[in-house]
Design a protein around this nucleic acid. Structure first.
Lengths: 246, 246
DNA sequence: GTTCGAATCAAACGATCGTTTGATCCGCCC
DNA sequence: GGGCGGATCAAACGATCGTTTGATTCGAAC
């Protein structure tokens, strides 16, 4: 009877103020080992299921009932742990993108520490290998599909999602500018645009993409894929400047 | 009272059997000129509105009520003219993809007619310029965003959508193989994969992509974009074979 | 002037969506 | 052993979705 002054709003995920967008990117519970009961494992199972479904389908095409059914959890668990559907998406993204970008920057710094001018191929590998390696692991295969699409898909979710890439972008942009002095800034921008695009379609590993090149690419070998991607993008970046037409 | 034996099912779009997937790709009424009344212009207005909304948002995120409101048409007009939401999507895609692929093949055939071995850059321009040029026209700007995403997005709609590209793919694959004899078929497959990927992110012109390279690329000049794309992909395709590692 | 069919319309259909509610379970600490 | 709070639960909320219905409009054919 008595209205009971809004008892909720104390979930770990977020109350009325949504969780910080600059997420901490820590894996709460890696869904490994056999915890005694269900513990807080529900949160991890929700992330796993949502990761797969968001990648297999779309953000909009994936219903929370699908997610909770796949995660063997209650529908309200999403609201409880993540506040909303978009909170779930942000958590899926933040869980893995942090470590990837951290490894990228650490590898780049190590390269810059050991030599004055870093070879172009080394920069490219530092940028692309962490994500590509994740694509070859069962746990990260779905996530890389999401990352690959973040570059070209519309929607508010994505804008916030790859804002986490900003720091990484700045660091690598300087490195590329040093390694490619023959390119004007505008030209360097175009070429990096294309290079990242090539990486993204490889990460997204789209159903269409695989169909399109069916029989020609052996998508099973991630090592060969990385070698080919580095060779292709390095040559493209090193191409002579086209400057003002012609 | 009397059940009135299902009077509908005679729309031009499709009855119970959906319209032929291998669409004729003819523009029914180019939404230009001032027809007397509303005529069948509604169909074209629906296509225009859906094209923009599907590109700005997503297939799933776009409701038919949004489309019909933007097109100043009745909600039931979609069912009447296209049979269903997916029929509308197919019609949007079929309206423009036919002419693009036709121009691609005609340009390639013209090149092969006038010289024994076609230069790589010429093949690339024949493949990429028709779509890039459409991106610079007001009428086609939204559509190119769709085309760029067809390569990496999941969903049934897309699978059918770029099946229309099959013929074009085969023709250009032969041309590339002739122009790049130093590449094994598997390597050629990878590189074409990346080249098309670079083109797709340029076509999709994603919100994120533009943000990511903000200030570096002047996206306003489509001619410069094409020059840069051709230079980048040509160099990437011509890169030495990496073969078996290293 | 009547008939016919393509085209448009308002209104509703059942289904499913994201979110919220209040109760219930259960391990833990004092 | 009694209370506390995190976690889970069934059930419902209002909104919106794609689709369908049956009536209405309107120009052309006869």
């Amino acid at each position: 009877m008595a209205p009971f002054r809004r008892p909720r709003r104390s979930a770990p995920g977020s109350p009325d103020v949504p969780p910080r967008p600059t997420a901490s990117a820590e894996i709460p519970c890696a869904a490994s080992g056999a915890g005694s009961a269900s513990g807080t494992r529900t949160r991890a199972r929700l992330l796993d299921a949502a990761e797969r479904l968001f990648a297999e389908q779309n953000y909009e095409a994936t219903s929370l009932r699908q997610v909770t059914r796949a995660a063997d959890a209650n529908l309200a668990a999403v609201s409880y742990h993540f506040g909303s559907k978009e909170g779930l998406f942000r958590a899926v993204f933040a869980r893995r993108i942090g470590p990837i970008n951290r490894e990228r920057i650490e590898r780049l710094q190590a390269l810059e520490r050991e030599s004055e001018v870093v070879p172009l191929e080394a920069i490219l590998r530092a940028l692309m290998e962490p994500a590509l390696r994740l694509a070859s692991e069962p746990a990260g295969r779905w996530f890389t599909r999401l990352v690959g699409r973040a570059f070209s898909e519309p929607g508010e979710h994505w804008i916030e999602a790859d804002r986490e890439f900003d720091g990484t972008r700045a660091a690598f942009l300087r490195a590329f500018a040093h390694a490619l002095p023959h390119l004007a800034p505008a030209e360097l921008g175009w070429r990096l645009y294309f290079a990242i695009g090539a990486q993204c379609v490889l990460l997204s590993g789209g159903d269409q993409a695989r169909r399109l090149m069916s029989g020609m690419v052996s998508a099973s070998d991630p090592r060969a894929a990385l070698d080919q991607l580095v060779a292709f993008t390095a040559a493209g970046l090193r191409a002579p400047a086209v400057g003002g037409r012609g």
